[in-house]
Amino acid sequence: MSSRVLPVFDLLLPSNLEEAVGLLSQHGDQAAVMAGGTDLLVGMKVGMSPAFILSLADIQGLDYVAFDAKHGLRIGAMATLSQVVDSKVVNDKYHALWYSAFTNGTPQTRNAGTVVGNILRASPAGDCCCAALAHGGSVLLQGPAGKREVDLDEFWLDYRKTARKPDEVAVELKLKAPEHGYGSGFAALTRSYQDLAKINAAARVIMDGKVCRKVRLAMGAVAPITLRLKEAEKVLTGQEVTDQLLEQMAAAVRKEVKPIDDVRSTAEYRREVAGVLAKRVVQDAIKSVAGPCPYSCFMGA
């Protein structure tokens, strides 16, 4: 049974990252780190009961979405989904991430929830997780011993488990800089608009004409963590992308995913549409190499 009454906790409000790490060194095992709180507070109504909540709200300067051509995109721990949706550079260069943020949740949760929070939540259905994994990148963590970067490919260990240690703060998400021929796409299927994904997929391609030089293909809600579909990637890599090749890739995807039945969908359905979504996101990604963002019009500044 849920509760309207939040469990008792101590609120920790560090004013800088060093202080945050210090507090986590003391209380990390019993503490939840809060950025937007859109997942944490819901969890606390249904049984989650951390003794401490460490809020990042008072730490200045974590709400950035910054890009440079050499290092790529950096999204600070407090940057909201709405900030990403309103970012011209994300809309121009990181189509999959932009669309994953655009379709994520509701306006209210996008205004509060953060992209880094979405990554840290490690839900296999996380839309930004899926897009970020396709783009490729890393999570910057700060702990007592200083900073370290963990590649996204190694960041999610299991269902809702990440490589972040209890005494570390996730400071930012870094996504690789686009290369020549770069394109990306994202898609999710939901029961209704504004719903958790029953399955999502994202692709990032680097094209050389019609030949796919490199590809990263990610899929969510088909395994305990968001998956890289490496077998399917192999089918495309170095090949001219044809309808027939995409069918071969889809077949590989269906072999690679490990979906289950739940209230949102069935394993059988997820396996079947996994191939369809993979094709669609690769096609979108290829289309976006030459053109603008293939998704809904950009409304930011």
Partner: peptide, 15 residues
């Protein structure tokens, strides 16, 4: 298994 609005979905305005 679905006794909340997160788990039981209806047609919303955008649908």
């Amino acid at each position: 298994l679905n006794n909340t609005f997160a788990d039981y979905r209806m047609f919303g305005p955008s649908d």
